[in-house]
Structure formats: C-alpha cells, structure tokens
Design a protein around this nucleic acid. Structure first.
Lengths: 147, 147
DNA sequence: CTTTTTGTAACTATCGTGGTTACACTGCTA
DNA sequence: TAGCAGTGTAACCACGATAGTTACAAAAAG
C-alpha cells in the first residue's frame, strides 16, 4: 500500500499558487483541476485541508486562493501533515492483540516500535528538509530547459 | 494509509522461528497463528512470501519451518521487501497524467521524484540497519525483565 | 439580485487487506 | 500402504481508504 496521491496533488496545487502571476487570471479549483487532471471537487477537498493547516487562504465567491507564507517557508513535511496521508506517528501498522501468553507475542510490539519510529522519522526528516521553493525552482529550471 | 501489518506479522513469525528450541514442539502455522492471534492461512501466506525470498525453509507435511540464515544476517529491510508491503521504489504514489500543457503539470513529477526517492531510501536505510537478532535480543531482555 | 465559485454531502467504483472455509497435495509413521 | 497432520492455494467475504462524480446550499462581489 502506498501513500496517497493527495500529497503529490497538494504539492502540485501549491506550486501553481506559488507561481501564479499577480495580474494573472484567478486560479479557481476548476483551473487547478485542469492542470492536475482531476475533478474540481478533489482539488477543493485538498484545498480545505491546506486551509485548515494554515497554508493557504481561500476567498469563497469569485475570490481566488493564495499562499499565506512564502514558498521557502513551506516544507514538504508541512504539506504531508496537512493532507493527513498518514496518521501522525503511524506509518507502519502493527498487528494489535498478539497473544500475551507468549513471550514473543507479549513483547514484539515494544521490540519493533523503536525501529519503526526511527524509520518513519528518517523519512519525514527528508520531507522536512525540502520546501515548496525547491520544487518551484526545479519546475522553472526544467521549464526553461525543455521550453 | 499505512504500511500493511504483514510486515510486523512477518517479523513476529521470524522471531518465533529464531527463538524456537531444538527439542521444542514443531512450530506449525496453527501455533504461530496462536501467538500472532490470527488465522493460520494468514501465516501460511506470509511464510510463502518469506520462503520465496529465501528467508525460511518450510517442510510440507508434518515438517516444521526453519530459518535459512542466522538472525543476525536477516535485516528488517529484507523482511520488508519479502512481504512486498510496498512496491519497490514506490512508497509515495504520484498522480499520473498531469496536464502536459501546463508548465507545472509537465514537470511536477520529475521535480518531486528526487525528494520522494530520498525520503523513501532514508526510511529503508533504518530498516536495513536493524536485524532479526536485534529484535529477538530485545524480546529476550524484556521477557527477562518483566517475567 | 445575479453570477461565480467555494464548501460539503452523498453516492459510486475500485483496490488492498485480513479473515475464513474448503480442499488437494505432501510426506512421515504406524 | 493406509492414515493423518500439516502445507499450499483458490475462492469468497467484509471492511476501509481512495478518488471520481453529481448536486446543491452558502458566500461574496459586481
């Protein structure tokens, strides 16, 4: 099982917002959906989560959507947490209720927990070290290169 | 979405095998299921994957199951790979088919790929650094401590 | 007041998981 | 060699998450 694409869609949407021109046409959920190639409702749902996390501000009516911070101040970990693709601290699921009458069953959870936690943290630290700025810079570089 | 418990069950089963006494009663899928607290078929399915990965040897009939290597030579990453909880190199799923007519849509996948790959690798490196031996040692220590 | 867009609810299809039953096959053992 | 304990697997089910879709009320801006 993989981590939901909500995360990559969220980064995509935030990149669009980060690169949006002041004088450009407003970025509606419909336009974003066009770039992501999905349904506007899917975008609005994710936008709702990003809003709840304080990453974006959405103006209802014919308003538009904007970042609340500079791209350099938005880490991919913040986005990852915002869309809740993985419940905090539970990347790995461990079978609950092993048999307490067995030494292994009684202690396996505790014996595994430390390692799994470290594995998860190692992954998240990489996300913490990357920002939306890095992504958009990369996109601009690639756009310039390939036309 | 989390990583399947197949992984933790596999480590549980391997721990049972590692700690099994020579003169002990044979570890059947039924007994292991008793310790994990699940159905024997679930155990057999996982044993099948561990066997395919060359981590255990299973003697059909009234045979029993054994590790093919010493616990110190079985990394948790090998177990993780064996049970295929995550397709190799694809911990994160990225939305396919973004709009190629949009600069962001055209380059988001490549722009994200490097970071996501590093995040995944960081996680796997922690698993690579832990062995079945570490787990069983920990279990024995906890068993001795709590009785 | 009309128009545009957001916010949500509700429903759907699809997929992975984990549990369960059923049964053929294997190989020891009496 | 017949019996039987245990494995290997197929088939099916229930459950939950995902992602897509339709529908519509609520919000503002003109």
């Amino acid at each position: 099982m993989q981590i939901s694409s909500r995360f990559s869609v969220a980064v995509h949407v935030l990149s669009l917002l980060a690169l949006q021109q002041e004088d450009d046409v407003l970025l509606t959920s419909e336009r974003m959906a066009g770039s992501v190639n999905t349904n506007p409702v899917v975008i609005r749902r994710i936008l709702g989560q990003l809003k709840k996390a304080g990453l974006v501000e959405v103006r209802p009516a014919s308003g538009g959507t904007f970042l609340t911070r500079r791209p350099a101040d938005i880490s991919l970990l913040a986005v990852y947490r915002a869309v809740e693709v993985v419940a905090e601290g539970h990347l790995f699921s461990v079978h609950d209720k092993p048999n307490p009458a067995c030494p292994v069953g009684r202690n396996i959870q505790a014996a595994l927990d430390d390692t799994l936690q470290r594995a998860q943290t190692a992954m998240e630290q990489v996300l913490a070290g990357a920002t939306l700025q890095h992504v958009t810079t990369d996109i601009l570089a690639k756009t310039a290169a390939t036309g």
